[in-house]
Design a protein around this nucleic acid. Structure first.
Ligand code: NAD
Ligand code: NAD
Lengths: 207, 207
DNA sequence: TCTCAATAGAGTTCACATTCACAAAGTATT
DNA sequence: AATACTTTGTGAATGTGAACTCTATTGAGA
């Protein structure tokens, strides 16, 4: 039996739909059909309709979906209708790139703190964020930060996760190429860039 | 009907298995059981056995799998048994982080060229790679580079992909939050960091 | 040599996801 | 008002993958 009523694969697609809808909304478009949306995002129209039907969005036959209404619904389902403060751990090459990225805000994220162990990094200020020593991780709960991004060297990933869990973090985006052990109530999503790259040659025609 | 005989989900897991096996191999371990491997990588033992059975790897009952043999087989299936030269397009925050990453080599990748449009970046040297002007993309075919990483600003992603296809690129790892249109024979894998982050709150218990 | 524990590999079942087709419901046109 | 057209929403069919079971095989130790 599934705990969440909406299929995981649908949840995976919702942020993609949301991204497209936000862009259309900026262009002051009011409605869109599943077909047009499919063209823009590179998915099937019936997949879009099926996904929406799971959570009872009602479009209008002959017209399509109201973009603003749809954005609101998807944000609500994904719990993106409130701002989420996030912490970055590991201000190395990848970590600093993430810290510099301005567009997490469209989904309602605010990277509000950054941590490292390297004394050369600690105290540096990036985009109004002062990099702190990892010993400060324990202050996260007080600061109402319950989401973290791990970008430390792989051999420190597990211990970082342990510290984050202790600090009350509920969700982790992990960039290290490691399986991270956490209590069941904590959700980890891992992005392993190298393994994704490693899938590519399999699908490439022989040169 | 599927074109490739091995399931996509299996292919997705193979690089993860490979990563674990390479690490064990360095520690001079000879054999490993599906159970122990499952513990290390955080997957099910029967999933591992089923995946291996698809391509006829034969382990030894009572002993497990021979690590060196298994590495060789997985590399062959993923076509990682030869070195793949890759090009990076977009030497910004993310691009430079990728260029600096030393561990793509374990899968047999060699980032052999980098491109940008910004005159301030062009000519800069990073890890023996001199950043070139994008007009040089046309030289990729001659240089036997058939794999590229897109890390340009999102609004330039499609035109970059078009240029890459024209230059004979067969596989693209795309970091821009965009659907990229390419001919069928070209494979695109997109890593959209923000949409992955956006899935996290849905799975987090209410704080 | 026999027995037992460990473990692979194949088969089965179940759960989930995608695709398709079409009726129902709306809009636009005449 | 009637007709033609567009687009949604969903039930059914199909496809895919995960979970689990069972049996055969192997290695090691009595
Ligand atoms: N850069 C890439 O393209 C890339 C690709 C694939 C995977 N990764 C993974 O992402 C992670 C980060 O990569 P990177 O390239 O930024 O590495 P990096 O070495 O540039 O940065 C790591 C940073 O983490 C800090 N750090 C180390 N231990 C720490 C600890 N215990 N607590 C807090 N900070 C700590 C270091 O001081 C450093 O600043 C690594 O796990 C790497 O394997 C990176
Ligand atoms: N940095 C992140 O954490 C992050 C997160 C999610 C998505 N992304 C995506 O990754 C991509 C790169 O992000 P970034 O943070 O490195 O951006 P960035 O602005 O730091 O870098 C973009 C680089 O691309 C170069 N460029 C622009 N147009 C080009 C062209 N036509 N050809 C070649 N080079 C060109 C620019 O000169 C710049 O150096 C973007 O599409 C972004 O949306 C980044």
């Amino acid at each position: 039996m599934r705990y969440h009523k909406i299929a995981d694969e649908t949840i995976r697609r919702l942020p993609i739909y949301l991204r497209g809808l936000l862009s259309l909304s900026e262009q002051n478009q009011a409605n869109i059909s599943s077909k047009d949306m499919a063209d823009i995002l590179g998915v099937n129209p019936w997949q879009i309709r099926k996904d929406f039907s799971y959570f009872g969005v009602f479009g209008t036959a002959g017209v399509g979906y109201n973009i603003k209404k749809l954005i609101k619904q998807i944000k609500k389902i994904l719990k993106l209708d409130v701002v989420h403060k996030a912490a970055l751990v590991g201000a190395g090459n990848l970590g600093l790139a993430i810290l510099a990225y301005p567009d997490f805000g469209i989904y309602g994220f605010d990277i509000a703190a950054a941590f490292d162990t390297n004394p050369k990094k600690i105290g540096r200020k990036v985009k109004n964020i002062t990099i702190e020593d990892v010993s400060n991780l324990s202050t996260l709960k007080k600061r109402k930060i319950n989401l973290a991004i791990i970008a430390v060297s792989w051999d420190k990933a597990q211990q970082t996760a342990d510290a984050l869990v202790k600090a009350g973090i509920k969700g982790i985006l992990n960039f290290s190429p490691c399986y991270i052990r956490v209590p069941k109530k904590v959700k980890v999503i891992t992005i392993d860039i190298a393994t994704d790259l490693a899938r590519l040659p399999y699908y490439m025609p022989a040169s």
